[in-house]
Design a protein around this nucleic acid. Sequence first.
RNA 1: GGAGGGUUGGCAGAGUGGUAAUGCAGCGGCUUGCUAAGCCGUGACGGUUAAUUGCCGUCCACAGGUUCGAAUCCUGUACCCUCCGCCA
Length: 447
Amino acid sequence: MLDINFIKKNSTRVKEVIEQRGIKGVNVDELLKIYDEYLEVLKNVEKLRNLRNEISSKIPALSDSAEKKDLIFKASSLKEELSLSEKEMNELKKKIDEFLPFIPNIVSEEMPIGKDEHDNVIVKVWNPGEGYVNIDKPVKYDGISYAPKTDFPYKDHVDLGEKLDIIDVRQSGKVSGSRFCYLKNEAVIIQDAISSLLKEELLKRGFTPMIPPLLVKERSLFGTSHFPEGRSQVYEIKNENVEEGEALFLVGSSEPSNFSYFMDKVLKEEELPVKIYAQTTCFRSEVGSWGKDVRGIKRVHQFDKLEMNAVCTGNQERKIFDEFLEINEWLFQLLEIPYRIVNKCTGDCGYSATYFQHDVEVWRPADREYMEAGTDTMTTDYQARRLNIKYKGEDGLKFARTVNDTGVAFGRAIIALLENHQEENGSVIIPQALQKYTGFEKILPKK
RNA sequence: GGAGGGUUGGCAGAGUGGUAAUGCAGCGGCUUGCUAAGCCGUGACGGUUAAUUGCCGUCCACAGGUUCGAAUCCUGUACCCUCCGCCA
């Protein structure tokens, strides 16, 4: 959430960003008009309260009942006007409070301006065995692909998974419906192996491991700006099993749970940054993406993810954003998967908290296209304001900064690993860095 | 499911109708020749303002109500703790 006074002082920039992000139906001038009305009424309320307080404070000292009666009468006569004015003020305040969450964060000067994903900018391209591809002139988002050394008809993860007996999306359809899956045998071991590899690195880097709740109240999702806009993406648990009838929501990422751990807290500056990781299951309704990515496990209602989050100061946020990206690259390099880093443009940078965002996209030889495998996001203090996370530094209390990154979305990492490391006969070679954790070097077809 | 206790500033903790003690920490200032201590100041948010050490308002879990006046009384809600019961 942006501060209303920041919006007032920087209304031109805020309006420009709303336009660039392609957000419709948010009228900043209307908000500021309501705010000005609110201030007028607020001044009147404060004037009346001041008068009342002045009269009231004289009362206890008086023993004379006539004079006392007179003052009580005077103070009483203010009540009606004050109450009307307060009511008006509360209504205006409510309007502002409802309006403000829809104002998105401003964006970094480094973020490309663009309408949709085609305007994203490629920052880095890395190929196994070759390293970074030299990018001396801007590369178009749609103008890049990876050419594997050996060429044969690549199978996708669904065909591979079935032949290797490690992914089953038929039985899951019967059990739970579309967009679910069973992972079994080596697929599970691979997930655990990637998890171990990454967790070891994160612990070395000073991360705090965490297992957070996955059912949260509305405020957590509001706090990270998943609500109100993304509400339809989230499963709501609302029945007689929920205590006191208050709905709970199944998180689509552990980010809301993790950051809410710091909600309403004041941290000490010297404790920052706090970096945490959490491996959890994530739930997404995928409303609005019906018909999209229906094949396989790319877009499912339930998947596991290892999330990296940080609460820090303004001086630390960029360094952490860079560190998170470095970890993403480190992982995919060890997995020997071709990837590219994408600077997301204003029209494609996710939820309203985003200030600056990079995606890691991995190559899928079966579809001959890159697929999003993770997102690294700087949100400045946008989430911290909503969650009321502060820290005390030398010059007083300040809102903290939050940075979040998909450490690894296991389903997508498994897709990339199977498809990139397949052999013509349908077997899959395990990258060397992972073999220590899997205990095997290759998966052979069983059917 | 039943019964009881609780929620006050960064932390601890008093305050049962007259406008939030005190201690600790942090920060700022002053002082001191005895190893570090002492003294003074300092809560948060909002408004006003060019800006304030200024002035005003609000804040004692949250939301209402009673009252000239509410941390304090009343109603509702959330959360925490203890005990009993039930279950794993």
